[in-house]
Amino acid sequence: MLQRRHLPAALAAAGILPLPALAQGTGAPAHQMPGTRHGAMSVGDCVLVCVRSHAMCLETARYCTEQTSGHIAPGHIALLQDCAEMCQLTANSLLRRSSRHSVVCNACAELCETCAKDCEAFTADEQMKRCARVCRDCVESCRDMAKSPI
């Protein structure tokens, strides 16, 4: 399994993100797309947060289907899958520099917020807690990016 700290390099190797600006001597982090910094968040940063949330929601949906205790309702699994798809759509929108990215980012933030709240209801489940944290990161990132032109 690809570890999160290797995600920027893997995305660059797959041609999804440009090679790091470090190669150009700018000193920018490997996950930052050159020329796309907006305040504390860059387009590349937001893409990575969305991709991480996409993966976490899919992983958590799979986890939920494997639970034998029956404590995970089908509606929660559907919410996780919807959230994963929205995060993927948002990352795609940002990567192609869509002029409507703010609409997509706001929708993603709203869906991730709903997903995080649902996951937080499972107070004794570590997987659900992790998913909620990742979704909350995506909420913050997408809300910031929705305010920025790209």
Rank of each mutant, 00 (worst) to 15 (best):
C112M: 15
C112E: 02
A10P: 14
A124G: 14
S93M: 03
A84F: 06
V47P: 02
I72P: 09
P8G: 00
A9W: 15
H6D: 08
L79D: 04
E85H: 10
V104E: 07
T65P: 05
L7S: 03
V139G: 04
R143P: 00
C64N: 01
A23Y: 03
A23H: 04
M145N: 12
L89Q: 07
C83H: 09
G70T: 12
A9G: 03
L17Q: 09
P149N: 03
H6C: 06
L79N: 04
S93I: 00
E113D: 13
S99T: 14
A9N: 05
V134F: 01
M1V: 12
R97S: 09
R62A: 13
Q127N: 01
R130A: 00
F122Q: 03
H54Q: 14
P74Y: 05
N92W: 08
H71R: 09
C83A: 14
Q88D: 14
N106V: 06
I77M: 06
P149I: 14
R100V: 02
R97F: 10
K129E: 08
Q88R: 15
V134D: 02
A55Y: 01
S148V: 09
C108Y: 00
G15L: 07
P74H: 13
A91V: 08
C138S: 12
A40G: 02
K129Y: 02
Q32T: 15
A146L: 08
V139K: 00
T36D: 12
M33R: 09
D144A: 11
N106D: 07
C87Y: 03
G70W: 00
G39L: 15
F122Y: 15
L95A: 08
V47G: 08
E110K: 11
R37H: 08
R37F: 02
M41T: 15
S93Q: 06
C138E: 03
A132R: 00
A146G: 15
E120H: 02
A73W: 01
V43N: 01
S69R: 03
M86W: 01
